[in-house]
Design a protein around this nucleic acid. Structure first.
Length: 214
DNA sequence: GGCCAGGACACCA
DNA sequence: TGGTGTCATGGC
């Protein structure tokens, strides 16, 4: 059994799996919508909804913003929870419209301020907020989603039942660039999809994670 | 035909 | 604060 830090974990995964080029999406608007639609749903279903949206709006923010909530519901139905998610997308694009759909101007604000604004929107919780921060607003944050927590629980000394606890520790421990944070999330999720069912035969099985005491 | 998937939220004790 | 039910669809 080899003990490693979180920083080691990133390097081991990157060396083993290579760059992920994570988060499918041609534009930041597509990524943001995907982050909402994928909540508790598989990506295949999200693609059906994105295809519907692409067909009617070409994923142009002004056109999406102009849709009624009922129209959005019809288009995103394949990815489930369409009433909740349509409300969320409507609120998100209302928020984006206030910034004239300009991600660059939004990113001038601090991570904490942007995160607080996102969390106020209906249907956006910690994971979705962090996904948008990381992939749309270019903020280096750690996404402690369920795959990630399960991987850390396998590796480790501690059990992370809640999102904030792991996020806080990881962000204090890690010294990564923005694109490395983006890669790390991709590595963790891609690993989680295929290897969590058979942990003992995965390449991470020999490692034990050492966490700082707080 | 049941189970699950890259959550969020209201409600309860 | 932590546990539980609900929201919905499509693939396996």
């Amino acid at each position: 059994m080899t003990t490693i830090t979180i920083q080691n974990l990133y390097q081991i995964m990157f060396d083993q799996m290579g760059p992920q080029g994570w988060w499918p999406g041609e534009s930041k608007f597509e990524i943001a919508i995907g982050a909402v639609l994928v909540q508790n749903t598989n990506w295949k279903n999200v693609e059906y909804s994105l295809d519907n949206l692409r067909r009617t709006t070409q994923l142009q923010p002004e056109k999406i913003h102009a849709l009624t909530i009922e129209e959005i519901q019809t288009l995103i139905r394949p990815s489930g929870f369409f009433k909740n998610k349509s409300r969320c997308i409507t609120a998100l694009f209302e928020w984006l419209a206030q910034a004239h759909f300009d991600w660059k101007i939004l990113s001038l604000q601090s991570t904490a301020k942007l995160r607080a604004q996102l969390l106020k929107l209906p249907g956006i919780g910690p994971e979705t907020a962090d996904s948008i921060l990381l992939y749309c607003l270019d903020k280096p944050v750690f996404i402690a989603d369920s795959y990630t927590r399960r991987i850390f629980n396998h590796l480790g000394s501690a059990q992370f039942s809640n999102y904030a606890e792991l996020k806080t520790i990881a962000e204090q421990e890690l010294n990564l660039t923005l694109s490395e944070f983006q890669e790390f999330h991709g590595l963790l999720d891609d690993f989680g999809k295929t290897n969590l069912k058979n942990w003992s035969s995965s390449f991470l099985a020999p490692y034990q994670l050492v966490l700082p005491k707080y």
